[in-house]
Computed example of a mutant assay.
Amino acid sequence: MSASRSGPRGPMRMPAAALAALFALTCLTGCDDDPPARTVAVVVGRHAGAEGLLDSQGKAITPLSSAVDGILSGPGTVTVIANDGRPRVVKTIELAYAGGSRTQRDDAYAKNKKALETALLEARPVVAQADPTAALKLAGDAVRGKENPEVIAFDNGLSTTGTVLMQLGLIDLGTDAVDLARQSKGMLLDSFSGIVVQWHGLCSVVEPQPGCSAGVQQQLKTYYTTLVADADGRIEFDDAPLGGGVPPADDAPVVDIVRWQQRRLTPSVPASTATPTPNPIVKVLTEDLVRFQPRSDEYADRPAAERAIAELAPKLGEDRYPRVWVVGCTAKDPTATEDEMMSRSISRGKKIAADLQAHGATSQFLPGGRGWRCPGFRENEDAANRRVIVSSEPIP
């Protein structure tokens, strides 16, 4: 008994079991292992505007918060890069980190998030243009060789200056986006070794910019995927449309999404590093074939739909297009569930596939649907969203 009491032989000692219980109780308030430090570059797109990632109270919109919450909770740095016609580093934030109680960690997180929101307000454009390729290179240079490097891009991916221009018409669906990316390869060479790029908002345009189609979105994905892969990195896309932020400033450039314009690189990529260019592949064949009536798989204009189907069907032969994907889409219907919208979109895909076959198409058709979450979804344009995408490759 004397071992557990104060007395002539020394101070009272706590039994080992009691010490373990006390330690476990203390860890309820925050004794997790410290997370690893991360080095992150955030590219802020010119067209949505830095303010487009903030709501009217200056707080980060949900897509931004979801992308950076885990980063802001730990140690490391976040570098904010503004993508205008002259991409630049706006600020590098040293993240506050407290490894103590949950309250201390929450306070550190709130401080980091406020610092990011302040940096976004400082990321207003200097030049009313956009050069995503140069912005990506700057981001790669900012994190390459650092602890746990990452790049997060919030950008619609359209370029009004730089190595490849994307304006003045519809991007030609016959353009070889892989070839264009490799013409730009010299810009990013080795910039992304071991780095993953998380891209949000590709093709997420706002007024006065015209809608970005699924065909354009696929071309842009091919372009940026090839560009980053050839620089030894990897890219992942989150196709959820951005929204909820402050509208862009009046001086936002109008990006008419038209044809790719190629510009010679300086310096050019050495001939020894050139990569053979594959034959051009047309991916999205059409997404404007027909429109549907609301909450139905009946055509909005049957005579026009039948003419369009009859014109397309002879072009879909198994010799040229062995397999063709037909993906139905819907408007975002507040009266329907996600499952109901998905079912309706699949029905539309099957209807188009059957009608194309009835008009002599011999390709193997793979009908499906994406509900309202189709590539090229247009906010507040319900009629335009009631459509199908016909493609010679799978629709992501």
Results as ranks from 00 to 15, higher is better:
251 D>G: 05
289 L>D: 06
331 A>T: 03
305 A>R: 02
319 D>I: 08
314 P>N: 02
245 G>A: 02
265 L>F: 05
277 T>N: 07
236 E>H: 05
259 R>M: 09
231 A>D: 08
323 R>E: 15
241 P>L: 04
339 D>A: 15
320 R>M: 12
277 T>Q: 05
266 T>E: 12
295 R>I: 03
324 V>H: 10
259 R>C: 06
241 P>D: 02
291 R>H: 08
331 A>Y: 01
273 T>D: 13
232 D>L: 10
242 L>W: 01
260 W>Q: 05
316 L>E: 02
269 V>N: 06
259 R>G: 10
332 K>Q: 07
255 V>W: 12
313 A>G: 14
241 P>V: 09
290 V>E: 03
244 G>Q: 08
257 I>H: 02
289 L>M: 04
232 D>N: 14
331 A>E: 13
230 D>T: 07
293 Q>C: 06
276 P>L: 04
226 T>E: 07
286 T>Y: 02
291 R>P: 07
272 S>Y: 13
269 V>A: 05
315 K>I: 15
329 C>H: 06
280 P>R: 11
293 Q>F: 02
253 P>E: 05
248 P>N: 00
248 P>R: 00
325 W>Y: 14
248 P>Q: 00
312 L>R: 14
329 C>D: 04
231 A>Q: 11
255 V>T: 15
311 E>Q: 15
335 T>L: 09
305 A>C: 07
285 L>N: 01
245 G>Q: 00
269 V>G: 03
286 T>H: 04
318 E>V: 11
302 R>A: 09
261 Q>P: 09
301 D>C: 00
335 T>R: 15
297 D>C: 06
261 Q>W: 13
331 A>K: 01
292 F>M: 12
226 T>S: 06
256 D>Y: 15
334 P>Y: 00
311 E>F: 06
296 S>H: 06
259 R>L: 10
306 E>K: 13
243 G>D: 03
296 S>A: 12
322 P>C: 14
333 D>F: 09
235 I>D: 01
236 E>P: 08
298 E>P: 04
277 T>G: 04
320 R>F: 12
294 P>L: 03
244 G>S: 04
243 G>S: 07
279 N>V: 11
234 R>Y: 12
339 D>C: 07
269 V>P: 11
336 A>N: 10
331 A>C: 02
327 V>E: 09
337 T>K: 02
318 E>R: 12
285 L>G: 03
271 A>W: 14
286 T>S: 11
266 T>Y: 13
254 V>F: 14
249 A>K: 11
248 P>S: 00
322 P>T: 14
240 A>F: 07
278 P>D: 05
271 A>K: 14
256 D>T: 15
242 L>S: 03
260 W>E: 01
229 A>C: 00
263 R>Y: 13
327 V>D: 06
273 T>N: 10
270 P>N: 08
330 T>A: 01
338 E>L: 09
234 R>P: 04
275 T>R: 12
319 D>G: 08
340 E>G: 07
289 L>V: 11
250 D>K: 14
274 A>Y: 11
287 E>A: 03
338 E>C: 03
261 Q>S: 14
287 E>F: 00
278 P>M: 08
